[in-house]
Structures are given as structure tokens and as C-alpha cells.
Simulated assay, not measured.
Amino acid sequence: MANTTQSAKRARQNEKRFAINKARRSRIRTYIRKVEEAIASGDKAAATAALKTAQPELMRGVTKGVFHKNTASRKMSRLSARVKALG
């Protein structure tokens, strides 16, 4: 338990921030899953559309501090390569 008012406030802020980041991370993972499902189905048009909607979400996660920039870039690069490989 927090001993000072300052540490109590910091604990409350951490809880709030954790919930927000958790929701953001979950939202981004959902977008990524939609791209992967479209790739698995073999529908290139759907996969391309899903990737186009997932990219800004991933980069928004970077600006909000949920993901590291290189992590998001790596995920986008791998997903786009898989979409491109669909024939």
C-alpha cells in the first residue's frame, strides 16, 4: 500500500494508464489478427484492405508509447510481405 499521498496518486495514475494501454494493445492485436485471418483465407484484396487499416493503428500505438517503433515497423514489414506473397 502507498505510504504517502504522492505515492497513492502515482499508484492511481499507473492503474489508469495500465488500463488505457491494455485496451490500446488489445485493439492493435485485433487489427493484426484480422490481417492474418485474411492472409490465411487467401483473399489478397481483403488482406490488403485489412493491412491498410492496421498500419495507422500500429503507428498510433507507437506514438502513444504502447509499442516500440522498431517493433511496429517489424510487424508491418512482415505482414506486408505476407500480403504481397499472396497470389
Results as ranks from 00 to 15, higher is better:
Ala45Gln: 08
Lys22Val: 10
Gly87Glu: 11
Ala40Lys: 11
Ala23Met: 12
Ser80Val: 04
Ala72Ser: 08
Lys22Glu: 15
Arg60Pro: 01
Arg27Ser: 08
Leu58Ala: 09
Ile32Ser: 03
Glu57Gln: 13
Ser26Asn: 04
Ala46His: 06
Arg29Asn: 14
Arg33Phe: 10
Ala85Ser: 11
Val83Met: 01
Gln6Trp: 10
Lys75Pro: 01
Ala47Thr: 07
Thr63Tyr: 02
Gly87Arg: 13
Ser77Trp: 00
Leu79Ala: 00
Gly65Thr: 01
Ile28Gln: 00
Ala8Glu: 14
Ser77Lys: 06
Thr4Asp: 08
Phe18Pro: 00
His68Met: 05
Ala72Glu: 01
Thr5Asn: 15
Ala19Gln: 11
Val35Ala: 05
Lys84His: 12
Arg12Val: 10
Arg29Gly: 13
Gln13Phe: 09
Phe67His: 09
Arg82Tyr: 02
Lys64Ser: 03
Tyr31Cys: 08
Pro56Ile: 08
Arg29Thr: 08
Ala23Cys: 06
Asn14Trp: 07
Ala8His: 13
Asp43Ser: 10
Ala45Ser: 09
Asn21Ala: 11
Arg60Gln: 11
Ala50Pro: 04
Ser7Ile: 03
Lys52Gln: 09
Ile20Ser: 12
Ala19Thr: 09
Ile28Asn: 01
Ile20Asn: 10
Val83His: 01
Leu86Met: 05
Arg78Glu: 04
Met59Asn: 11
Ser77Pro: 00
Leu86Asp: 02
Thr71Ala: 15
Gln6Val: 14
Lys34Arg: 15
Ala54Glu: 00
Ala45Gly: 03
Lys9Thr: 13
Leu51Ser: 04
Phe18Asn: 14
Arg29Cys: 05
Thr30Leu: 04
His68Leu: 06
Met76Leu: 14
Gln6Glu: 15
Gly87Cys: 02
Val35Phe: 03
Thr30His: 04
Ala2Gln: 05
Ser77Cys: 01
Gln6Arg: 13
Gln13Trp: 08
Phe18Ser: 14
Thr5Gly: 15
Lys52His: 09
Leu86Cys: 02
Pro56Cys: 05
Ser7Cys: 07
Ala38Tyr: 03
Ala49Tyr: 05
Thr53Arg: 12
Arg33Leu: 12
Arg78Pro: 00
Lys16Cys: 05
Thr71Cys: 06
Glu57Val: 09
Ile39Leu: 07
Ala11Trp: 07
Ala11Leu: 13
Ser80Glu: 04
Leu58Ser: 05
Ser41Asp: 12
Arg78Cys: 00
Ile32Glu: 08
Ala50His: 06
Asn70Arg: 11
Arg25Leu: 07
Gln55Val: 15
Met1Leu: 13
Ala50Tyr: 06
Ala40Phe: 03
Ala46Cys: 07
Ala72His: 01
Lys69Thr: 12
Ser7Tyr: 05
Gly42Cys: 05
Val62Asp: 00
Phe18Ala: 15
Tyr31Lys: 15
Lys69Gln: 10
